[in-house]
Design a protein around this nucleic acid. Sequence first.
DNA 1: TGTGAAGTGTCAGTCGCTGTCACTAGCCTG
DNA 2: CAGGCTAGTGACAGCGACTGACACTTCACA
Lengths: 216, 216
Amino acid sequence: MTDERPAPVPAPGLRERKKRRTRDALLRAALLLFVAQGYEQTTVDEITDAVDVSQRTFFRYFANKEEVAFAVQDLVESHFVAALRARPVSEGPLEALRRAVLDAWDTLDEALSEVVPVDLYMRTYQLIESTPALLAVHLRRSAELEERIALLIADREGLDVDADPRPRVAVAAVSGVMRVTGRLWGQGGDASVASIRRMTEACLDQIGPALAARWH
Amino acid sequence: MTDERPAPVPAPGLRERKKRRTRDALLRAALLLFVAQGYEQTTVDEITDAVDVSQRTFFRYFANKEEVAFAVQDLVESHFVAALRARPVSEGPLEALRRAVLDAWDTLDEALSEVVPVDLYMRTYQLIESTPALLAVHLRRSAELEERIALLIADREGLDVDADPRPRVAVAAVSGVMRVTGRLWGQGGDASVASIRRMTEACLDQIGPALAARWH
DNA sequence: TGTGAAGTGTCAGTCGCTGTCACTAGCCTG
DNA sequence: CAGGCTAGTGACAGCGACTGACACTTCACA
């Protein structure tokens, strides 16, 4: 299924392989230290000592200490975007968003296992939700992701995002709900993928009822 | 209208007045420097030099450099919460939220003018929206505000937030839409209150249509 | 095999932020 | 109103995140 196109990735070369190895080592060491003793309690020096490189090298791979915490999140987000792209245009925007989210959770394991165990990602995600400095960055990143998704949705529907506010509004509403989900999940005891998938479904089911004029 | 209750605020005392004066001076100097030359380009030393106090003193008034940028935002948020509390229970949750937001914009001028000119606040707000580090913090603060509002809404409707997800979901959806508004306003040229009020109304009008199953 | 460039370590320095301690100036009591 | 108490401040030392400059090693490619 892969390895069929010889052109773009023929032989990485020793230099490239070395680079990837140090980056991966830094990433893994950082995440382990973060989940073990907390983000703020972990210094960059500790991370680089664990991998035995200089501090300067860390900052050549990651723009700042936060970035390393979101490296895996990057993968998860592109995984979701891919799932959304895969939805047929025949589905309405909300339907497509909902199915894409659930699909993404279902297939997360395979998509991630090459780089980092899903388990470690889940613990990192909880760390992000519970560390104020990381949560702030996470929310800003989510806002950027929202914009990408809004463009995608507008494209599906053949609309211009700047002329019609509905794509952005719909995505904002759904994302808001998803954030509630993430927070509730982070506070709950069950850190499994199954658990967050279940909560996602439940919260999305409530979006219609919640926006009704009367609740009684 | 004031000065009728002698008990809680009889005479601030010289010490108290001095404190308030340095705090106000720091706040004003900081905001002016921020909007003039940018947040990251302004060092804490520059701020304290402008007021002629030591750097240490700055950090006795503000926990960190960000906090001073959000001091006015704090006022605006409590102003909005007050507006929401003032809405009669007879209004449904969405109706109340909508009217509270618009009310808050309409009366912002009076509520703020004592402390800082509205104009300076508006420029600060645009600075926050356009400075990544500040935007991140702003979004986290907004999330905290959302939680407060969700509790308020649940209270109005006589519901338990943890049993019924609708308060959080509704507030999340509306807040998401409001964030889109804020961003669009920040990018647009018109930095007036009237402008953001108008955009708020327009975006909130779209929340129903945007969540319809089909857009065509 | 030698030359250029990519990747790294070292060092010095800036900035945000904190703990400590001595000192000054309002306040409060006798 | 004198003298002690304490809140508020400044000066200083120090940590951790981050950056720029430069020299050195090591791979790549002719």
